[in-house]
Amino acid sequence: MRFAVLQFPASNCDQDCVHAVRVLGHPAELLWHKETSLGSADAVIVPGGFSYGDYLRCGAIARFSPVMQAVKRFADEGGLVLGICNGFQILCEAGLLPGALVRNRDLRFHCEQIYLRTDNFGTPFTSRTPRDKAIMLPIAHGEGCYFADPATLASIQAKGQVLWRYCDASGAVTDAANPNGSLLNIAGVANERFNVAGLMPHPDRASEALLGTDDGRSIFESMVDALQQRTAAKAA
């Protein structure tokens, strides 16, 4: 399965994402922000970093880049898109995901390991996630506090679009386990069709045991599974 990893000026997790896909044995290619086509990509990863210096708002300028117009068309056609950290912010700014990310409630940049509870295992991003434990991933952000108005929050909860929430090691969703003040401890969401998802934590920095945790791997494995099922369904 071919992954395209977008590259904006000041992206800094693009190589991590490429590596995370390649260790699974799949090809990944970098795609510069001025590209207008995704080529033959089967899935897109919008990586972390500080695209365009985070000027104006995180993700606000990246949203209008040529490559993002191609990503929007790809998502509209049902293509799989995962946004990580700044990538999540970009997808929210682009309107591909509900809500927005604002300044952490304590105004501090958080760089630490956190635990995530998966709320919906029936998606192309979570199907391979272990059911029996909270997954441990790193976060590194200053503006990761998830916000949406009450109607949107109720709707995404009812539809199962809240995929990941911050929790403690035992899986309990508590305020103490919330690193940034996100509403309902939300760390990541999907769109209504479940072909676009984003999260603030970094599965790309947690894809090998050498890095302290390989819990992030299951998110990429889930995407690969979903793509392989699609290919099989097309062939049948």
């Binding site: 604002v102 300044r103 409630r105 304590d106 916000f147 003040g181």
Partner: peptide, 14 residues
Amino acid sequence: TPKKAVLDPQGKTV
């Protein structure tokens, strides 16, 4: 300006 419903830690700190 931030919407009133949005947490404004900067405003609070100032």
